[in-house]
Design a protein around this nucleic acid. Structure first.
Lengths: 237, 237
DNA sequence: TTTATGTATTGATGTAAATCAATTTTTATA
DNA sequence: TATAAAAATTGATTTACATCAATACATAAA
């Protein structure tokens, strides 16, 4: 059911792709004709906080661009979830499964009210086949994600708790909120899943950082007070 | 310095790419002209066991196909190495860095005497730009690796020791040696790095499996005696 | 407002796996 | 062959983290 809030957000709907400021930069290399077709085939969906956008294991029929809000992309494990990435506008996502087994290998869930623009996989594949620039852009994007996932593997297996939590704080500050002063929309469990730690351990480390005055923290309001120290803990973690 | 053994292996040198049976299936979609250019630009290198083929952090100038031998592809972490993949003929490898920062983000080292066929990155990029089938094949390959690395993340963070060691044994048997009866060329440390465990812990689990008669193990000769049980341990982890 | 339900916090306890240390076995070298 | 060096094994100890349990707090529903 739509909330009043999401109803009003319908003003967020994009008129067209040509002058859309929510468009992923991936699409900048499309030809005029391809852009036209893109515009005719896309559609937008509005999600409430907590709703699932892609479900791990389900069939991958569309690629998406997040046009507003915040979402988490995570692997559902047996014992816990591992958040690989927080998605924000205008992140583009094409499931790696669309060229393999047409399945989603992770779940994407809205953290805040969110809108996403959907594009049919067949259409996306066609763009790749017909436009080498587009293909190259996509490959660059994929490869960057691969490299990131290497880093994730090392962090999750080699860093210990303080290093991982410091890493999560720096990631949120540098990449997601782009500020040292954050009204985080993530729950403590989300932060834990970002670190691959239990909720309790994460909370304890956050408290340590607060006591050491590296951060200030009240509820979901977090401010980085000593970026230097956090960075050092992350590096030596 | 070349050993006598590696000298004799020069007979392994490929005459040309056209009828090469060490060629990665990726290249099957090349046009005749592209295949001709491939043949003229490639070169082969012979490695002794233990030698480094690609070094993490160094600049990525070539993509490779492993034409003989066995190699390990691993991330060098602060405290330990994580083996992502064992490479065997005719595995193809293009560093994800070639479309990002022109660096290697992992190290590849020969486990046994090994030959690898090198192809210039510029040339490889050209193939991708000029041949959409080739680009698609490459994307498929990349995506498959991405999906595998998701699995790796879950295994390393959620499975405990017996599950991980069982996984490594099954991987070696199913994918690398393609037999239940293996004369493993990997060291105990290699197996540990494949599991993300310490050498000592890995050895202990192997001993447990031997005592339970799931495997027989003498030195580097390993035979799977109870595949079912190993699979179950892997699944329930 | 009251009640309920989920989220956050803190402390006590348990445990999986690493580390350390010593010994044995294997492989390489003089 | 003898000797050195590396790899494998085993046991004892330590520790980083999870789990469990109880309580506090916040948000939403009645």
């Amino acid at each position: 059911m739509k909330t009043e809030d999401s109803f009003f957000r319908k003003s967020d709907y994009c008129k067209n792709c040509f002058d859309c400021d929510h468009r992923s930069e991936l699409f900048n290399v499309l030809t005029e004709e391809q852009m036209y077709r893109l515009n005719n085939n896309r559609y937008e969906v509005i999600y409430n906080a907590g709703e699932t956008i892609h479900k791990q294991g389900s069939s991958a029929t569309h690629v998406i661009t997040l046009t507003s809000g915040l979402a988490k992309l995570y692997l559902e494990g047996k014992h816990r979830d591992i958040i690989l990435e927080i998605l924000k506008p205008t992140d583009f996502f094409a499931a790696p499964g669309i060229f393999v087994d047409n399945r989603h290998h992770y779940t994407i869930k809205a953290i805040t009210p969110t809108t996403a623009c959907f594009l049919d996989v067949e259409h996306f594949r066609e763009m790749i086949n017909k436009n080498p620039y587009f293909a190259q852009k996509y490959i660059e994007m994929m490869n960057e994600k691969t490299i990131n996932s290497f880093g994730k593997i090392l962090e999750l297996t080699q860093k210990q708790m303080p290093g991982r939590v410091a890493g999560a704080i720096l990631y949120l500050s540098n990449t997601i909120y782009e500020s040292k002063n954050m009204d985080m929309e993530l729950s403590r469990q989300d932060i834990a899943d970002l670190c691959g730690l239990s909720k309790e351990s994460t909370i304890r480390i956050l408290k340590d950082f607060k006591d050491a005055e590296y951060i200030s923290l009240e509820g979901k309001h977090l401010t980085i007070k000593d970026h230097e120290s956090l960075q050092q803990i992350y590096n030596n973690g």
